[in-house]
Design a protein around this nucleic acid. Structure first.
Lengths: 343, 343
DNA sequence: CCGATTCTTGCAATCGTTTGCAAGTTGCGC
DNA sequence: GCGCAACTTGCAAACGATTGCAAGAATCGG
């Protein structure tokens, strides 16, 4: 593998025209040859291809995209409606993003990532779609932008959204059945002996609202008192304090906590321990997501699992089918109780 | 006045030419108006701008990029040399990515994310750079591709790499002083009373090798026996088992563990507890990164902090300066000991 | 009122690739 | 040797926005 050979003055060949001159053919022929187009003679093609390799030529994707009216890029946008700091810490979205990158790469697409703050730019979605840079878009999380997304959905097909499914909505969504997840969580708490339940987390975002509603379903069905909402932010620095305050205010009156995410549950566990409350003896706790951290808390966290990898596969699969012109139904994934030691 | 053609679909104004027709001016004028170019009369500009807003017109970024020879997109590439599954679980890279997205958005750039497996495609870096889609590139992690990156660095300026700094290297790098971090970790272990040290993690990747070397520096200086390497993979599923085996094999003979990352340290903590080994009484443990999880383990993890946000700022700052034609030095960030309860 | 400035605006070339069309070749059967 | 396919290839027009240049309009000093 020695490359000590002196390369003869390598003329820089940037454009397809440069390469055409070198090969003694026209630009059109080069284009066809590089595309593996059968219209071009085999020998000519081989010559061009080897010349291209030798000079490290790569066709300009901008020009190609402009002409073909497709870019080979899928936009992934994360609207930060509630808590601007959210993503940095929320490993759920990041994990989903990782899987999306896998899937899209595998399908030959590149991924263009954009974080937006809808409050600052109400036009965030149209701007991204209208940029001409992307063939389709995946929206990660509806945040508080449900209406905005609905508006766009009618006029723009290649869009799939991660989030919660609503009755009769227009946009194609992939997500966990959050309400069912909420039911599973509450059922587990109740089965473990809890009677006075609380929900830890902001009930504003659609997903969380559904989880809360599911838990409330069970409380109602069992004739338990209504579930107490304990709102928090998502960034760990702020959430820690807020949780501490909630626990201090309600310790003794609640014996079961359903946390909106594992991240919050883990923080909650720390605070409970700090305030001398035993889990699961004094208080039962169930999280949501089944992030890696759920396995590593002490005691390990009982939680509701979302299949993130399946979600990513679903998002990409549906998007590709929409790109191909199919019209697709939304995909609702079943959550799953993972019983560990906190409830 | 109308141009006489019957156009029922006057709502679709996709191109600058459509808008020009609507405004009764030429395409060039529209382009100038939208660019806020002072060459165009104020009244004309206002008319065009309001017309553009009204019809939701957005200039096509592909065409613009092609003509201006710049795209407003920065490529971020993650080479997966060692462990293909790595990224999914490694929240360090994901957190860095989040901060990068923040910084780049703030500077008006979009982010194109690409994951590559250099083993499958030795040409990964040139391919990305040569695509014409990006104005510059940030490489996250040198992986085992140091040489490849060096080769490219001489011919392509707008590239900055996250990783470890080597003596006399050509490419511009931002990263923590891993060797110093290793020293800090080992010093802490020794100060806490440990004498027989082990390093938990693969020593292949450059960053890890430097951390290991730093720890070894201290062991040598203090006349301690050489540090025992306990290699593992990074994905938690495989790492868990491997760690359990390591601990079982060496319990009793080692009393201080320096883990290559907090993720590994957290897993290690679980296994130590499972095998009845008390931390920090029987074994001291120090991690690396100071991820959120470090605060949430029981007991909380003593670790070496990398300032990820500062790293992201540095990467973007250096890249922008290189785009502006400056030539820049590498940036080495100081690690910091965060003393908690495991050592 | 004229010539010289200064503003505005349109024209047309350009970025690099793709692709419909037609011209040029070759081969083949008769 | 001719006519008709079947191949190859080149030409030139897109794709949509930007920008140098120059022409037309407006302004101004004398």
């Amino acid at each position: 593998m020695s490359d000590g050979e002196d390369r003869p003055a390598r003329t820089t060949v940037r454009t397809i025209t440069d390469l055409a001159r070198l090969a003694g053919v026209s630009a059109g022929t080069v284009s066809r040859a590089l595309a593996g187009n059968s219209l071009v003679n085999t020998r000519t093609r081989e010559k061009i291809v080897s010349l291209a390799r030798e000079h490290g030529f790569r066709p300009n994707q901008m020009a190609s995209g402009l002409r073909r009216q497709k870019t080979g890029v899928i936009g992934v946008v994360i609207p930060l409606g509630h808590d601007t700091r959210q993503q940095i810490s929320d490993s759920f979205f990041m994990t989903l993003l990782g899987h999306l990158a896998d899937e899209l790469t595998h399908e030959g697409y590149d991924l263009m990532l954009r974080r937006v703050v809808p409050g600052d730019d109400p036009d965030w979605l149209d701007r991204f779609i209208g940029s001409g840079m992307i063939d389709g878009v995946i929206v990660i999380g509806q945040s508080d932008q449900f209406e905005r997304i609905e508006e766009v959905a009618d006029g723009y097909r290649p869009m799939v959204v991660w989030g919660n499914r609503q009755e009769g909505q227009h946009h194609c969504v992939v997500g966990t059945d959050n309400r069912l997840g909420g039911r599973l969580a509450a059922e587990r708490l109740v089965a473990a002996g809890a009677r006075a339940l609380a929900f830890l987390g902001d009930t504003g975002p659609m997903e969380f609202a559904a989880r809360f509603a599911g838990a409330q379903d069970i409380a109602t069905r069992r004739g338990l008192p209504p579930i107490l909402p304990l709102p928090t932010h998502l960034s760990p620095d702020r959430a820690g304090e807020e949780i501490a305050r909630h626990i201090a205010a309600h310790s003794g009156t609640i014996d079961g906590i359903f946390a909106a995410t594992d991240t919050l549950a883990a923080l909650c566990l720390i605070e409970l321990r700090a305030q001398g409350i035993a889990v699961p003896q004094d208080v039962k706790l169930v999280g949501f997501d089944d992030l890696p951290i759920a396995r590593q808390t002490v005691p390990p966290l009982t939680t509701i699992r979302q299949d993130i990898a399946a979600g990513a596969r679903g998002l990409v699969d549906l998007l590709l089918r929409r790109l191909a012109g199919e019209s697709t139904e939304s995909l609702v994934l079943p959550p799953e109780l993972v019983a560990r030691a906190t409830a």
